[in-house]
Design a protein around this nucleic acid. Structure first.
Lengths: 162, 162
DNA sequence: AGTGAAAGAGCCAGACG
DNA sequence: CGTCTGGCTCTTTCACT
């Protein structure tokens, strides 16, 4: 899949710092990673080119944006032919309420995290984006009370480095 | 929950742009949002203070970091007393393999997205972080083949603005 | 609130050790 | 890989709408 990118301890430190705060200045990043600014800039560029760093995104409180409700929709497909899988995934990409799509192995085929205005909106979305789709056999919707994302990298990654 | 923050169309545009690219320069952000640099800077500051923008984070390819496997662990608690819930959540915060915790209503109580080295690591984690916990009644683990996050804001948010 | 201008800080390349 | 230099761009403040 990904090219044989080898990361050393300083690369991991850079990645870890950018994961925690993507708007850190190169100057501060260099200082905290223990590098000169020029070297740091070069490493970040290489990490981006190698697609180790794939993007920088702001996290937003859904409430003031009018997102009153979030849910996880577990989806089981009727058939698992490549055509069905691809058609369903292409369809999901057009649904703006979708936050994250997890393609899983187990009782379900997909877990789809959606963000909606209210319960009426969720009901309408469940029908139009899922139940009424020909590829879909069955869905089960769970309301999300709260969710917390962890922006630290796992510590076990440190053990591999010098 | 959140204070009565009212966002106008320009705020939404700023948030949308920062969600797509958190490292955009203030100059470019101002141009794309249709504001002077100084006004744009002031708005971003206000959005951060109001906790509408809660952070900026780099997205990383898990592969080169030694994350070979990801899974969603569905957890059912034995009891739902406040003490049990809080103890379990506090525990999860100490587990570095945890990526996201979804607290849900439905058949399960939590969906926990974890990132691990390999299947041996997952097996060990399932035992030590979940099954052996006194608060936990039952878990079900689903392998994540792939997941795609959508960094666009839902389009239905635009309709509220002038 | 928003703007424009001006000072200050940070960015980034190139040359060299 | 680190340092230094120099020019350039972006950031940030401030007085004025």
């Amino acid at each position: 899949m990904s090219k044989n990118v080898e990361l050393d301890a300083k690369d991991v430190r850079i990645v870890r710092l950018l994961r925690k705060n993507a708007r850190i200045s190169n100057k501060e990043l260099a200082a905290k990673a223990g590098l000169a600014q020029s070297s740091c800039l070069e490493r970040v560029r290489r990490l981006r080119m190698a697609r180790v760093l794939t993007g920088y995104h702001a996290d937003v409180d859904p409430d003031p944006l009018g997102i009153g409700l979030q849910a996880m929709v577990a989806v089981r497909l009727a058939r698992h032919a490549r055509a069905d899988v691809e058609a369903f995934e292409r369809h999901l990409e057009t649904v703006t309420e979708v936050v994250t799509i997890f393609h899983v192995a187990g009782a379900n085929d997909y877990l789809v995290h959606v963000a909606v205005r209210d319960s009426a909106h969720l009901r309408e979305l469940a029908l139009s984006a899922f139940t009424e789709r020909p590829e879909v056999d069955h869905i089960e919707t769970q309301l999300i009370f709260a969710h917390r994302r962890n922006h630290e990298l796992p510590v076990y990654l440190d053990l591999e480095e010098d």
